[in-house]
Amino acid sequence: MSEPDNPRWLDDVGDELRREIPVRAAWRAQLLDQVASARRPSLDDEISDFPPEPLHRAPGRRIVLSPLAGIAAALTFAAVGAGAAFLVLSSRSAGGDRNIAGASASPSTTTGTAVVSSSASAERETVRFELAAPTASHVALVGSFNEWNPVATPLQRDPSTGTWIVSLRLPPGRHVYAFVVDGDVTADPAAPRAADDDFGSANSVVLVSGRTS
């Protein structure tokens, strides 16, 4: 036990286990008598048991599957593996934002931005929308990609910076959007503006190229 590689605590545990537990002398004598009087197997008994029973005769559960059930089980395991891989990869791609040409990429010093990143898919790209609004209590995103639904895409507040952030995977094309800050609609101050202020205030534009670069 006390090999050089073993940690000291392991030696201590071994010593503790080897220490004799103090018991009453009368109880100990009674126990030894019972052990001595117990039947000991004879040599004949040992021979009759030789060779020992093979292990496969031990009682156990046996699962019987029809071929159809076997195929279904295999497909289930394959789906579980593929699904898990898909979820892991897609969550990784959502986190790997970087600027690309053609996007409304903005410097980090601005108060709002939509940054387009390449992703695992050549079809859609991850766009990270950010708005610095430290005093706001609720910020949401509305636009052509979510049917202008103010409850569909809430932003999450980063408590350390007061910046509100959300990432979306958008199809290629030109998307018009705006932020809803505590009920007020406002354009992204760091993105190109759309001129179509038909309903009061301007919107912003983000372009998704659909090409990984």
């Binding site: 509305v142 052509s144 049917e147 202008w148 639904n149 103010p150 018009v176 609609v185 179509d196 038909d198 309903f199 009061g200 919107n203």
Partner: peptide, 14 residues
Amino acid sequence: PLYSKVREGVFRSA
């Protein structure tokens, strides 16, 4: 873009 414009108008209570 036309459908989007309709939805934007509804969202903005126009």
